[in-house]
Design a protein around this nucleic acid. Sequence first.
DNA 1: TTAGGGTTAG
Length: 444
Amino acid sequence: MFLFTTHRHTTRELLNALRGGGAACPSSALHLYSQFRLRLRPSDPSHLAWRAAVVTLRPLTAASSLPLISHFHGHLLRSNLLAYPQIASSLLRSYSLLSPPSAHQLFDQIPPATRNTYVLNVMLSSLCRSSDLDSARAFFDDIPDKDIVCWSTMLACYFSRGRLADGFAFFRSVTFTTDIAVDDVMLATLLTACTSAGLLPPFCRAIHGYAIRYAIPPSMHLGTALIDGYTKAGRLDYATRVFALVPHRNVIHWTAMICGMASHLCNNEAVQLFEEMCQRRVQPNEMTFTGALRACVNAGLVEKGRDFFKLMVDRYCLEPDIHHYGCMVDLYAKAGLLEDAYEVIKNMKVEPNVIIWTSLLTACKEFKNFEIAVEGIEKALALGISDENTGLYMLITDLYAMGGRWDGVIKIRRLMQEHNVWKNRGLSSIKVDKPQGLSSAAPS
DNA sequence: TTAGGGTTAG
């Protein structure tokens, strides 16, 4: 925290305070910035002015404060700071995250001389997020000097729209028709797309092989994408090896590894890794706790799970979300502690969803506890019936039958009939030669 | 010293 003293701070000191997180909240950032502007002299180097404005925008954007950003935009216009590409790209990015139409308006007002590669890339990224793919592609085609960021942005756009074949064709065109050197970010983009499309493990190994061949280190995002890819491909051994090789492991690397271990039922290893992470003073986030709690659920470690949940709230001041409550309900329910599970649901700060009710009611069926089941059923029915929760309705039917409540069975059957929803038969398939989503045409 | 990309519950 930056403290104001009787000492008259120089512009450099104020800039360092802004940059060093001395202004985590928007109001203190704007206060520091106004102090900075008061001290700024014509003799100061011009880069001080735009740097201060750039770092002031960060907390405003992090707080998603559109009114403050608009207010700051006014100041930037009046002080002619928007002529700096650094400011233009920062402001454009802030708007594109919070209000894409405002970003597009701003872009039209940026003079062509200011529209450098950074500005164009932010605009492309904004179009990729908020407009149709063809508009983004048209904008991409018009960019004169495309760099790796530009190509990566467009590549991610294809994948995020589910256009796998076009994305792979696009990647091929990067490698075969340009001199662009593929980097770790582009490989991470490619790998993430393969992981979500289930094109593993050969693709994961191929991309990893490419990274090794071209000496691209598994740093940051590529490290996470590899860990996640290998764990989802069932290769915990490779994931562990990559994890060990990541130079500066951050919370996301640890989380990907912990979640990967938990999903493969290496529960004790996941719990150990989580504890090691805390010992090394790496701050866990909400997702890390989901992984750690899931390991406790799988292993039936009720006490440990309870401790982790308490640790999350008390020590790390994290607000539990639906995933954490879901784990806690499951933790107690699977151990037969149905009262505790139901208590979690009653005290939740978010509405329970179909997963939570299914978790509780499945345990009610297993442990033949009709009392809690009846209470739960009443509330679960409030979710309403849809194609997504027919499983829950079937479970409720079973529970009514178990309690001899045939009127309930008839009621649910009638509801399902009225809404024309039926439980689908279990079905699973494996594509062997041609993975799904690879059938569309290559881009022009 | 302004741009792209990564991790969660039945």
